[in-house]
Amino acid sequence: MPPTISTINPSQGPTTGGTTVTLTGTGMTGATAVRFGSTDATSFTVNSATQITAVSPPRAAGAAAVTVLHPTGNSNSVTFTYVVAQVPVVTVVAPSSGPASGGTSVTLTGTGFTGATAVTFAGIPAMSFTVNSASQITAVTPAGNAGAAVVTVTTPGGVSAPDAFFFYAAPPVLNTAVPAQGPSAGGLVVTLTGINLLNAGAVRFGATDAASFAVVSTTQITATSPPGTGSSPITVITPGGTSNPVAFSYVATPTLTALVPSSGPTSAGTVVTLTGTNLASALAVAFGGTAVSFTVASGTQITATAPAGPAGPVTVTITTAGGVSPGLTYNRVVEPGI
């Protein structure tokens, strides 16, 4: 009994031939040839009694009747349409940049992608690619050198012009974060220095995105810290990848619980012991807004020298990386005359 063909897939290909088609049907065991019109397939394989794969031969544009030849007779025919192969054109590469290590999934948009046999980035084959349609391909970038890489698509119609580019970005590197401590409430502007910082898409304090950031140059970013606690290393994310972390830690707001002594003369020189919490990162001690010299004895104690001033109360505060403490009152009194 002659074989029958129920489907052919794909049902069209270029006039240059070379399209692998799958014929499904019945009675295909023992087939002696597959013909496209009057021309034998370049090659064919009988996979089973219900399936043959065949490679289309070159042929003029138009419809060709595909048949299977068999000792019991020829099959019915199905139509395969030859089309003039179109030179592919790549118009958009998205995203247009990624790390030099490769592995970025990009979508190529253009025309003439049917039957694509290769996608290259600066001459290096894509790690993988899928032809989604005649106008779209998804490809995974190979590793490459930092800079612009020409993207090309090869089809039976030829190779696309070198007009589309993918930009390999060098990985970002961070050197410093200044200051490296800030209040747990956030809001501190931190200056980050390093290299390859252009086109940063995110700055993170630990796992939390910065409240805001600005790329100043390829070597500098300013970022505003979000609220947080404890150690929160900072990283920068660019098309080139994620940077190394640099240290940043959150400091709790300082408190003041006692001043000893809590009063003194209007003249300068009284050494006052300030007791409280979270004092280790003290940056300033002020009596009534006047900064004074001080020594950090521990996280709970500071000694400071009271400045001269008029008689009466003044507010004493401590400023640390965690902010400004609530104030305590220090009283200046007039010394009795003789």
Rank of each mutant, 00 (worst) to 15 (best):
F165S: 02
T32C: 06
V87L: 15
Y82F: 15
S101I: 08
V89Q: 13
T176L: 10
A118D: 14
T26V: 11
I302V: 06
A304K: 00
T120D: 09
P310T: 09
A291W: 03
S212C: 10
R35Q: 15
T39N: 12
V140H: 05
P307F: 05
V68I: 15
A85E: 10
T45V: 15
V173R: 00
G73H: 10
G228Q: 00
L279P: 12
V153T: 09
T224P: 03
A64R: 10
P313V: 03
R59I: 07
P142A: 10
V119R: 02
S262M: 02
P245K: 05
S212G: 11
S11V: 09
P226N: 12
T114M: 02
T266P: 07
S101F: 03
G264K: 01
L279D: 09
G312K: 03
P3K: 13
I8V: 11
S96N: 15
A85W: 09
S11K: 06
G264W: 00
P142M: 08
T114P: 02
A207P: 01
S232Q: 15
P95S: 10
A146G: 11
V90P: 11
T218A: 14
P239F: 06
V216P: 05
T19L: 07
S249M: 12
A177C: 08
V251I: 14
G25Y: 15
L23T: 07
T208K: 04
S97F: 05
L188D: 06
S293Y: 12
S231D: 11
G323V: 05
G123A: 06
G37S: 08
P326Y: 01
P183E: 02
F248L: 05
A258I: 02
Q301C: 04
T26W: 09
N76F: 14
A180K: 13
T303D: 01
S325H: 11
A282Q: 06
T218W: 00
G240V: 01
A282I: 05
I338Y: 08
A122M: 07
M1P: 14
P336H: 06
I52Y: 07
V153K: 05
V93D: 04
A210F: 06
Q86W: 01
A100M: 15
T295D: 07
P156F: 06
T255K: 04
G110N: 07
P183F: 01
V272N: 06
A180W: 08
Q86C: 01
V93M: 05
V296H: 10
G322W: 04
F248W: 03
Q12T: 15
Q220E: 14
P233M: 02
P10L: 07
G123F: 11
A164W: 14
F166H: 07
A64M: 13
T91Y: 09
L174C: 07
